[in-house]
Amino acid sequence: MRLGGGLLVALAAGAAGAGWWLLAGLVLAAIAAGVTAGLPEPGDTLVDRVAVAVARLAEVAVYAIAFGAYVFPAHRALAAAAFAVVVAGAGFAGPKLPTIVVRAVGGLLLAAGAALVAVCVAVLPVGTSDGLRPPDFAGVLVAAVLVLPFLRPAGRGRAGLRALLLGAVAVLAAFAALYQLGAVRLGLSPTSLRDLLSAADADALQPLLTAVAVVATVVPAFAAGTEVRARTGLPGLAGLAAAAAAASLLPVLPALVIAGLAAVIELLLRVRARRYSGTRE
């Protein structure tokens, strides 16, 4: 569910830094997510609660930026701020999403992703000047960090396998985008997926992409708002205001970097929780 909203902007940011080696970054992120998926959730200390809340709020900012860029490009900053306040605020105030809704949205986004990959692979791309550069290990690592927050699977059952499957979906989507646009063109704009449809002679699908962008950002942002409330209570409202400000002021790359670093910190806290539980046992 989180993956669709993240890939709307993360693929372009990753390609801008890593080129075709974005694929290696996605594989690295998928392995990290799969290996750590079975770790326990962070504890209930103040540090744990604040760290998780910051991670969710950073994701909200990314979803808000993607929503503004794809749905209201003429007023993206205002739309991003309003999105963070309204959608995440509704999640903060409202009940947890039913599991059936989460699964239905996940299935819809997977179907949309499969259709996008099929369209891009079926149409021969216009020749690009991109070449496979020597591996940029820093670029690969940054690409992995940018995508890592969105590979976290919902629920606990077979979480590692589901994280790896999400990673495979991300790799397929990235390959289709790179194949059709090339790394340079893909990395030029956060809304390069619109260029992707144009390059694949599929402009008729642009309204569908807008609808997918709405669903892919609204649902995980709502869920993130619910988790912020569970972790922080009323003080989380200040965090929502900060997320709205960040969404309206920050470019997408800093927002993605903050979300990625917050995800890494959360992962380290989960490792600590595992060690602590093992010591107690």
Rank of each mutant, 00 (worst) to 15 (best):
2 R>G: 13
4 G>V: 03
5 G>R: 03
7 L>G: 04
15 A>W: 01
15 A>T: 10
17 G>F: 00
18 A>L: 06
22 L>M: 07
24 A>M: 09
25 G>I: 03
25 G>Q: 01
25 G>R: 00
26 L>W: 01
26 L>R: 03
27 V>C: 14
31 I>G: 13
32 A>I: 10
38 G>T: 08
40 P>G: 06
40 P>E: 11
42 P>L: 07
44 D>T: 14
52 V>K: 04
57 L>K: 05
58 A>Q: 10
61 A>I: 05
62 V>P: 00
64 A>H: 01
65 I>K: 01
66 A>L: 05
66 A>W: 07
68 G>H: 08
68 G>E: 08
76 R>L: 10
78 L>C: 02
82 A>Y: 07
87 V>G: 00
89 G>D: 00
91 G>S: 06
97 L>A: 15
102 V>E: 09
104 A>T: 14
105 V>E: 04
110 L>M: 14
114 A>Q: 08
125 P>V: 06
133 R>H: 12
136 D>C: 07
141 L>E: 04
141 L>C: 11
143 A>I: 08
145 V>D: 02
146 L>P: 04
147 V>H: 03
150 F>M: 12
153 P>D: 05
155 G>P: 04
158 R>I: 02
166 L>R: 04
167 G>H: 01
169 V>D: 02
175 F>R: 06
177 A>P: 12
179 Y>D: 10
180 Q>K: 13
181 L>A: 09
184 V>K: 14
187 G>I: 06
188 L>F: 10
191 T>E: 14
194 R>M: 12
194 R>K: 15
195 D>N: 13
204 A>G: 15
207 P>H: 11
208 L>Y: 11
214 V>T: 11
217 T>D: 01
217 T>A: 07
218 V>D: 00
218 V>S: 02
226 T>Y: 15
228 V>L: 08
229 R>W: 06
234 L>P: 00
235 P>F: 03
238 A>Y: 08
241 A>F: 10
244 A>R: 00
248 S>C: 11
254 P>E: 07
257 V>E: 05
258 I>P: 00
259 A>W: 01
267 L>R: 15
268 L>R: 12
270 R>F: 01
276 Y>Q: 15
278 G>T: 12
278 G>N: 12
279 T>S: 14
280 R>F: 12
